[in-house]
Design a binder for these strands. Structure first.
Lengths: 172, 172
DNA sequence: ACGCGTCGGTTCGATGACTGAACTAAGATG
DNA sequence: CATCTTAGTTCAGTCATCGAACCGACGCGT
């Protein structure tokens, strides 16, 4: 966008959220992070985002305490970006938007299917389990490709998403 | 943003949604429409958005069949923008984002409180009623100001939101 | 020791989007 | 007839994004 600053007049928590999350690419970065992506290069390859924009967005997410930047090895120094609790709680809005897109913007059937691991039951909109009815945190979710998925992409993230995967689990 | 077009590489329904909804201002327009705002001038005054951007966004929402443009009086000709069914189903993602903002981006307590009218019970994240447990469509929701609300703004929309209001109900 | 590759960035010019103010059009109101 | 309201469009300036190139720290092979 040019989203960042200008929603001050809005007396609304949605506007507060969008000051951070409404900028171009930001929610897609969060989505990838929910899938378990942590490294700069993996975000870059999967999103096809300009490097400068990725850097700026990751910094903004870290400043907002949605992600945490940490060094996962010294020598050579390597950084990774991991969702905080605040960030993991973005799972319901992300799911709700994806669900809406699935029903109204997609022609080929669902691209991803989410299951509640303890119940082995599908998850509906609202992030509730269709079996136990409870709110399902990301930690208990598994993704697998749906009938509309594109299985031809070759970047590390797309490859990892071809099989069933626990959400948040780091890529190999 | 400059959001619109560029998410084609993404194999994801979230990206499809964001091509439309991720542009600056768009979700705030939808939020106002859920509150019952229908007229160009009301959107303009409540959002403080540049006129050209408002026109462009409303057109995009109409093209996407999220809103419908219709003439509510001849002579002088006047247009209004009303959510379609597809648009009203944006209520869960909007609520989820607002809820997240309320918990993580707001200091002053909730600004708006939503109740399920038949049950007279509060609505939680996930757009489910805390009493009957069912999914609550916007049509059955009432908004009222919460403790964090700003009651000093004087535009027609802000004034209408000072009292309890049925969602979607047109402004006077 | 040298050159090459990888990872995580920063810098830069060109392009495109957003902003705010001014202007237009069609009719109502006094 | 002049003025006001509503719903826009047009335009110049500013700001964000894009894509390509560059940089620095280090590992690895020879």
């Amino acid at each position: 966008m040019g989203l960042g600053k200008n929603y001050e007049g809005q007396d609304c928590s949605l506007a507060r959220s969008l000051e951070l999350l409404g900028e171009r690419w930001t929610l897609l970065i969060v989505r990838d992070a929910l899938y378990g992506v942590r490294r700069y290069g993996d975000f870059l390859a999967h999103l096809g985002i300009p490097r400068a924009v990725l850097s700026q967005r990751l910094s903004a997410l870290v400043d907002a305490e949605v992600m945490e930047r940490r060094r996962y090895q010294e020598s050579p120094p390597r950084e990774e970006y991991v969702l905080t609790g605040k960030g993991r709680e973005l799972w319901p809005p992300v799911l709700a938007l994806a669900h809406w897109g699935e029903r109204h913007m997609s022609d080929a059937g669902p691209r991803r299917v989410f299951r509640h691991v303890p119940c082995d039951a599908p998850i509906g909109a609202g992030a509730t389990c269709s079996a136990c009815g409870a709110y399902v945190p990301v930690e208990e979710v598994e993704v697998r490709p749906g009938p509309g998925a594109d299985l031809t992409r070759e970047d590390p993230v797309s490859v990892a998403l071809r099989g069933p995967r626990r959400m948040l689990e780091p890529l190999p």
